[in-house]
C-alpha cells in the first residue's frame, strides 16, 4: 500500500517544509518514506514542489505521475496538478490565491482560505501548516496527532518558539476541512 502526496506553490510558502513534516511523521509511524524536492535554480517567488511517498514496502519511484493527494498553494500549481490527482484522491487548494473553482468531479477538492486562516492566527507564513492540516484530515494515511507529534519532535531547537502556532495552524486547517461539505466524489 502506497500513498503519494505532492505539495506545490511559490518558493517561500513553506512547500518543502510541509512535506518534511509529513515525511517525519511517516518515519516515526514506522513507514517507508521518500521526500524529494523539485530542486531547480528557482528562488523565493519561483515555483517549488515536493513529493512525499509513504509506503509499507521498499519504495520504488520517488516521483509519480498521479499522486493520491495534492496541495496547491497558488494558481499555477492548481492548473498544473489538478488534472493529475489520482481519481478518488484529495486536492487541497489555497483559495486565498486562486480565482476559480474545481474542475474535477472524481476527486475530493477542499478549497481552503489558508492564507487568511494563517493571518487570523497571527502569521501569514503558517499557511503551509493550515493546508497540511486540511490534507491530513481528508487523506487516511497519517493521523493529525501523528503529524503534530512529528512537528513537536523534529522542529529544530531554534524554531521552537513557533511550535504552538504551527500546531494551531494544523488544527485550524483540519477543522476547516472537516467542516466544509464535500465537493466532488
Amino acid at each position: 500500500m502506497q500513498t503519494e502526496i505532492l505539495i506545490a506553490g511559490f518558493g517561500g510558502q513553506g512547500v518543502l517544509f510541509a512535506g518534511q513534516v509529513l515525511a517525519y511523521a511517516a518515519m516515526d509511524a514506522g513507514c517507508e518514506v521518500t521526500w524529494i524536492p523539485s530542486y531547480g535554480p528557482e528562488m523565493r517567488g519561483g515555483t517549488a514542489n515536493c513529493t512525499v511517498i509513504i509506503s509499507d514496502e521498499e519504495i520504488g519511484s520517488p516521483l509519480v505521475l498521479n499522486p493520491r493527494g495534492v496541495i496547491a498553494l497558488n494558481l499555477p500549481s492548481l492548473d498544473k496538478y489538478e488534472p493529475l490527482v489520482k481519481p478518488g484522491g484529495v486536492l487541497v487548494v489555497n483559495s486565498s490565491l486562486v480565482n476559480r473553482g474545481s474542475r474535477r468531479e472524481d476527486i475530493e477538492s477542499v478549497f481552503i482560505p489558508a492564507s487568511e486562516i494563517a493571518e487570523s492566527l497571527g502569521n501569514r507564513r503558517l499557511l503551509n501548516m493550515v493546508a497540511l492540516g486540511a490534507l491530513v484530515a481528508k487523506l487516511p494515511v497519517l493521523s493529525l496527532d501523528q503529524v503534530k507529534r512529528a512537528l513537536e519532535d523534529h522542529l529544530p531547537e531554534r524554531h521552537k518558539q513557533f511550535l504552538q502556532a504551527n500546531l494551531q495552524a494544523l488544527d485550524a486547517g483540519a477543522s476547516f476541512a472537516l467542516s466544509v461539505s464535500r465537493v466532488g466524489v
Binding site: Q20, T34, I36, P62
Partner: peptide, 10 residues
C-alpha cells in the same frame, strides 16, 4: 544522481 543527492529518506 541528483535524485539520490537531493531526496530525504530514513
Amino acid at each position: 544522481d541528483g535524485n539520490i543527492g537531493q531526496m530525504m529518506e530514513p
